[in-house]
């Protein structure tokens, strides 16, 4: 377990190609997003591909703008807005996937962005495994993660898979433990706790 405050330091110690499960409580959610999209890539030639199936890219963009976080190196794969009829126009830096059930298309859009915008380093964020599990059977979901992470690892990408503590599921935890190198529980700043769980 690491504190939100200690997360950037932990992220900096990761090797390229690492796949990390981040279990986050709702109160720390936006701070974790800030760490992944701003503090971690800062001062590096890094592209961030933010895949969202939880809340729309428009909402995340709004939050990043509110925190004054540059979006120059952030690309979004939005798998939720089409489904909610919220994708009437395609803003710059956003690629839509019709439905969170089209897992192959999520992989294809990530692959597309990696090719379209080559960068020295790449980070792929999957937000979140819980929302994907609402729409997909766990067997197909674990197959998706296994193939996606293997592919991203071959590109030396950092992969972060978010899960929300409040939606705790042993099956999801086991799935993440199987495909990820690290499993980090992020606790709010005012909570005490020990170090992260190494897989």
């Amino acid at each position: 377990m690491v504190s939100v405050q200690g997360l950037p330091e932990k992220l900096d110690s990761l090797e390229p190609g690492s796949a990390v499960a981040l279990k986050v409580d709702v109160d720390s959610y936006f701070e974790v997003i800030t760490a992944l999209t701003d503090k971690f890539p800062r001062n590096r030639e890094m592209q961030v591909i933010y895949t969202t199936s939880t809340i729309s890219s428009a909402t995340i963009i709004h939050v990043l703008d509110a925190f004054d976080i540059s979006r120059d190196n952030i690309q979004f794969v939005d798998a939720v807005s089409y489904m909610t009829m919220g994708a009437s126009k395609q803003p710059e830096g956003v690629t839509f996937v019709e439905s969170p059930t089209m897992l192959e298309n999520i992989s294809l859009k990530i692959e597309y962005l990696l090719k379209k915008y080559p960068a020295d380093e790449n980070t792929v964020i999957i937000d979140s495994i819980d929302s994907l599990s609402i729409h997909n059977d766990n067997r197909i979901l674990s197959e998706f993660l296994h193939i996606l992470i293997s592919n991203l690892r071959s590109h030396d990408c950092f992969t972060f898979i978010l899960s929300v503590s409040e939606q705790d599921s042993e099956e999801i935890d086991n799935m993440l433990a199987m495909v990820c190198d690290d499993f980090i529980e992020v606790r709010p700043e005012n909570e005490s706790g020990s170090t992260e769980v190494e897989m």
């Binding site: 192959e104 992989s107 692959e111 597309y112 059977d137 067997r139 197909i140 197959e143 193939i147 592919n151």
Partner: peptide
């Protein structure tokens, strides 16, 4: 053209 394996879901 980009390709990824078709998921079988078990």
């Amino acid at each position: 053209v980009l390709l990824v394996p078709l998921l079988k879901g078990g």
